[in-house]
Design a protein around this nucleic acid. Structure first.
Length: 554
RNA sequence: GGGCGAUUAGCUCAGAUGGAUAGAGCGUUGGCCUCCGGAGCCAAAGGCCCUGGGUUCGAAUCCCAGAUCGCCUACCA
């Protein structure tokens, strides 16, 4: 609808300029938005006001001219008013709104999708937790945000790859191996002083027990150094498999798992550093190599090769991002925990030194999660290994509840996740409100079919009968869904979708309580069934983007 | 000390590129099916949008300063 109006207004302004009503001027961007106040019509534009300074005329006079020259060949508009400092308010005919449903119905599950991205290739990297322990609740939020951003991108015509980066090269993997090794010996009766820097979680003991069962005591006779690689690889791959399984249960499947160790093949990292050194971005200080990130606005330079000769994670990250661009992505999006925000400037510096623009990397920060139970914080400490795993949460509250709750806040703000509320099957839990609406719609359609009202098709329905204000309101909400998806993608803000769903569900529930869909009036019943089906369809599409199910019964 | 983010109803939070009288959920209070699903609906109460300046036709939104809170500030991973 908005697009239709924009073109009418644009044409009118053009004919005003040609007709010398006001001088030719470059058309500044103007808004056509639904005003908050209903008395101001379905849409309002500030076109006259933004034109005022350009053509040096009074905004109200310009508005008058625009209205006078506006042509409406299809008769969409009921009336137009000029208000306030120069707003033009448009009142559409109810039937104009209702006709939009025909398009919605025809698009079906494609409604809300677009080709905005024009097939651009986008990589979204998220989670990327080290395989040294199971995913915990904090990873869950980043996982869903990344997954839904990826879904939004693919709904808008991007070609998306979901990638998980595995830090499998650092010495924390050796620590993992050593942890399992020590627990192994402990299980076999040795007195062990378990070091604080080793992983504390009980899952290490479980892994050690598995190894005891499979391999017996064979490692007791060998030297620790000989044993570590086995324990490291066994624990690492076993934990990674667990992570993949937890993600799958959570509804997340990656296209690509990228191993950090690949970057080191054929001395890849070192070659990149040499190249950067030649270009003057890197300098030496004894055995240490420093990256001059301050040249790109970072607050201090960063080490890439440590005094002991080992590269830092930053060095690997530079190589990794170069690798990403080398794979031909048009856009690269990283989802990071907010505790990494200090890395942003140096990462920007890194890619700029590599010759890419700052815009080539988009970083979405996801704030940490406060896990609560009945309003009280759940104690968590990674050090002691006492954390609540993602799997536990998903098992307790369900995939839908967990995903929806993670998505209800802007990524950038802290999130309280209350286990008891997320588990409640009541109005306190927002996901049920929406799902219930969808189930209710399905129920109406079932009942209607039983009573001899099959879902009408295009051509069998007269949308002109949908003239109640409540009906037009719902159609308005349905109509803005595609813009909402686009806006959500542009801003990389998935939380807008749950808010939208809540609005849509509220309008539907209210309508349901006020008006009967199925009545004696066959024509009207068919029209309303058609409307209600469009609501359900929009809900399904929106929930689909969120990876939350749209149940037909609850 | 420096950097980043936050600050909007009792609580948790929305308010995209500045727009007309500030929004939702929860909680509180009071109502609503002989009926297509009451996991729902309706109504009421509840606000110095942290403070002070500035920018302009117009500011919760943009700029500057300050206050409070959180996070970051490793040759850790």
């Amino acid at each position: 609808m908005k697009k239709r109006l924009c073109s009418l207004i644009g044409n009118s302004i053009a004919s005003c300029m040609k007709g010398d009503v006001f001088p030719e001027a470059p058309l500044p961007p103007f808004e056509v938005e639904p005003p908050k106040e209903k008395a101001h019509g379905d849409y309002a534009t500030n076109a006259a006001m933004v034109l005022a300074s350009a053509v040096r005329k009074n905004p109200r006079m310009i508005a008058g001219a625009i209205v006078e020259h506006l042509e409406d060949p299809r008769g969409w508009i009921e009336k137009i008013e000029i208000a306030g400092p120069g707003f033009i308010n448009f009142f559409m005919k109810p039937a104009t709104w209702a006709e939009l449903l025909l398009d919605v119905d025809e698009l079906g599950e494609r409604y809300g999708s677009s080709d905005m991205g024009q097939g651009k290739r986008v990589q979204v990297e998220f989670v990327s937790a080290n395989p040294t322990g199971p995913l915990h609740i904090g990873h869950g939020r980043g996982a869903v945000v990344g997954d839904v951003i990826a879904s939004l991108l693919s709904a808008t015509g991007h070609k998306v790859s979901r990638e998980y980066y595995i830090n499998d090269a650092g010495n924390q993997m050796d620590t993992l191996g050593r942890s399992a090794y020590l627990r192994y010996r402990e299980l076999l009766g040795e007195e062990i002083v378990y070091p604080g820097e080793c992983y504390q979680g009980s899952y290490i003991i479980d892994l050690a027990r598995e190894i005891v069962e499979k391999r017996g005591t064979e490692f007791l006779e060998k030297d620790e150094k000989e044993c570590i690689p086995f324990f490291r690889d066994y624990a690492g791959s076993s934990i990674l498999e667990g992570i993949k399984e937890d993600l799958r249960v959570f509804g997340i499947v990656f296209d690509e798992y990228f191993n950090e160790s690949e970057l080191y093949r054929e001395d890849g990292v070192r070659k990149i550093l040499e190249d950067l050194e030649q270009k003057g971005f890197i300098y030496r200080e004894g055995p240490t190599l420093w990256f001059r990130t301050t040249g790109f606005g970072d607050e201090k330079d960063r080490v890439v090769i440590r005094e002991n000769g080992e590269p830092t994670y930053f060095a690997a990250d530079i190589a990794y991002h170069l690798n990403k661009y080398g794979r031909g992505f048009d856009r690269v999006i990283d989802i990071w925990g907010a505790d990494h925000h200090g890395y942003i400037p140096r990462m920007y510096a890194g890619i700029q030194a590599l010759g890419y623009s700052r815009e080539a990397l988009e970083v979405v920060l996801v704030q940490l999660v406060n896990l609560l139970r009945e309003g009280k914080p759940v104690a968590m400490s990674t050090r002691s290994g006492e954390f609540v795993t993602l799997r536990e949460v998903v098992d307790e509250v369900g995939k839908d509840g967990a995903r929806y709750n993670f998505l209800m806040r802007r990524s950038n703000s802290h999130l309280d996740f209350d286990l008891e509320i997320a588990k409640k099957q009541s109005n306190e839990n927002p996901v049920y409100y929406v799902q219930y609406g969808h189930a209710r719609i399905c129920s109406i359609l079932r009942t209607a079919a039983e009573k001899g009202f099959p879902l009408p098709r295009r051509g069998e329905v007269n949308p002109g009968l949908l003239v109640l204000p409540e009906e037009t309101d719902i159609i308005r909400t349905i109509d803005r869904f595609p813009e909402l998806v686009e806006g959500s993608v542009k801003a990389l803000e998935p939380h807008r979708i749950p808010f939208y769903l809540n609005d849509l569900a509220a309008q539907f529930h209210s309508y349901y309580n006020k008006c009967r869909v199925i009545s004696e009036d066959r024509e009207l019943s068919l029209a309303r069934l058609f409307l209600v089906n469009c609501v359900g369809l929009t809900m399904r599409n929106a929930l689909g983007i969120l990876g939350v199910t749209a149940p037909e019964k609850m």
